[in-house]
Amino acid sequence: MASLFTRIIRGELPGRFVWKDDRCVAFLTIAPLAPGHTLVVPRDEIDHWIDLPQDLATHLTEVAQAVGKGIQQAFQPVKVGMMIAGLEVPHVHLHLVPIRTLQDMNFANQDRNPNPADLDAAAERLRSTLRSLGYKQVSD
Rank of each mutant, 00 (worst) to 15 (best):
D21M: 00
D22R: 11
R23S: 12
C24P: 07
C24S: 13
A26V: 07
F27S: 06
F27K: 09
L28M: 01
L28P: 06
T29E: 04
T29C: 05
P32C: 04
A34G: 01
A34T: 05
P35I: 01
P35S: 00
G36E: 00
G36S: 02
G36N: 03
H37E: 03
T38Q: 01
T38N: 08
L39W: 11
V40D: 12
V40M: 08
R43D: 03
E45Q: 14
I46K: 11
I46R: 09
H48T: 10
H48C: 10
W49V: 15
I50P: 05
I50E: 12
P53Y: 15
Q54D: 15
D55Y: 08
D55H: 15
H59D: 13
T61M: 15
A64W: 02
A66C: 14
V67D: 06
K69F: 12
I71S: 05
Q72C: 01
Q72K: 15
Q72A: 10
A74L: 06
F75G: 02
Q76T: 00
V78W: 06
V80R: 02
I84N: 14
I84K: 09
L87I: 07
E88D: 14
E88N: 08
V89G: 03
V89A: 08
H91L: 09
V92Y: 13
V92I: 13
H93D: 06
L94D: 07
L94I: 15
H95Q: 04
V97T: 03
P98N: 02
R100H: 14
L102T: 08
M105C: 14
M105N: 08
N106T: 01
N109T: 07
Q110Y: 01
R112Q: 07
P114L: 05
N115I: 00
P116N: 02
A117R: 11
L119S: 06
A121M: 01
A122G: 02
R127Y: 01
R127M: 00
